[in-house]
């Protein structure tokens, strides 16, 4: 297990390093930062002054190593616009995004798991078809459109929920519902598939033959085994939700990492964008690593591959 852990950790660190190098390079290639900072009306001499002032006259490699060296010490630089420490900007916003992502994942699990189980148990029934319809709806509907529909119905027409902001729990209801529809279909379908496989397995048939009550068969024998891939998916989904809430946060004016990323991309605040990518990729890799380790713990065969 230790050897497996070290191997996976090494791969995870390589992924983070690769993401940081690629994102650094792509951001620098997407436009001249000094031109951006100097503004449209600046002369070449003024742009050059800005380039020197912000250290952008050095080679890209030197800039990367500077940034990476500081990042390892917890210093992610400062925003080019607000001059705030990027670390503070991110840690200030991360709890909001984390709350949104976790609540969305919990909601998705609470809806998708029972629905997946029922769809598998009552295969080809109306429940199964309704679950399939919900999954297709969740996968097909753009999140911004669904968000606007929710806003119109619950915020404008009935005025039951606040439309924007993130100051009270009520502010999180519509963003949570919107975001959860992005992961609900996968969890539901994976649960259904896993349950169908489990229900057809010999050990479940044996459980039925032993005369166990249906609840014990479904939940103790079938669901327990069907949940293995769902655990992995849930961990990866959390990473996806943390990074994928940009549009939802923007529509609902939720002051999280997503809206920070959106604003920073719009105005090419490279240190902030770079650091958000770094932090999110780090979180994503850690979650993936955790899910790998959990799976390896549950299923020893994985460790042998």
């Amino acid at each position: 297990m230790l050897q497996y852990f070290v191997k996976r950790l090494g791969i995870a660190l390589l992924v983070v390093l690769t993401v940081s190098v690629i994102s650094f390079g792509l951001l620098r290639l997407s436009g001249d930062l000094a031109q951006n900072l100097a503004g449209e009306g600046a002369t070449p001499a003024q742009v050059d002054e800005i380039r020197v002032l912000y250290g952008l006259d050095r080679s890209m490699i030197a800039q990367y190593f500077d940034w990476a060296g500081s990042a390892l010490k917890g210093d992610l630089g400062r925003s080019l616009f607000s001059n705030d420490p990027v670390f503070e900007l991110i840690t200030h916003r991360l709890p909001v995004t984390f709350t949104l992502a976790v609540s969305s994942l919990l909601l998705a699990i609470c809806v998708a798991l029972p629905l997946g189980v029922f769809a598998a148990v009552y295969r080809n029934s109306w429940i199964d078809r309704a679950a399939l319809g919900l999954a297709v709806f969740g996968s097909a509907v753009p999140s911004f459109w669904f968000a606007l529909v929710l806003i119109y119905v619950f915020g404008v027409q009935f005025r039951l929920l606040p439309i924007s902001g993130s100051t009270t729990w009520a502010h999180f209801i519509m963003p949570t519902v919107t975001l959860s529809t992005m992961v609900m279909p996968q969890i539901m379908r994976l649960t259904r598939g896993g349950m169908i496989d489990a229900l057809d397995a010999d050990y479940v048939k044996m459980a039925w033959a032993k005369g166990l009550n249906p609840m014990a068969v479904f939940f103790k024998h079938a669901l327990r085994n069907a949940l293995l891939p769902v655990v992995s998916l849930a961990a990866v989904s959390l990473g996806f939700l943390l990074g994928g809430s940009v549009i939802v946060e923007s529509v609902f004016s939720v002051n999280g990492i997503g809206s920070l990323a959106y604003e920073s991309i719009k105005r090419a605040d490279f240190p902030v964008v770079q650091s958000i990518l770094f932090v999110l990729s780090f979180v994503y890799v850690v979650l993936t690593l955790l899910s790998d380790l959990i799976n390896a713990r549950i299923d020893p065969r994985i460790r042998l591959h």
Binding site: V156, I163, S250
Partner: peptide, 18 residues
């Protein structure tokens, strides 16, 4: 002054009287 980056959300907030 309320930060509302999305234009549709601005309209919705105005319709909701906020």
């Amino acid at each position: 002054f309320r930060p509302l980056p999305d234009r549709q959300t601005q309209i919705a907030e105005m319709m909701a009287g906020r």
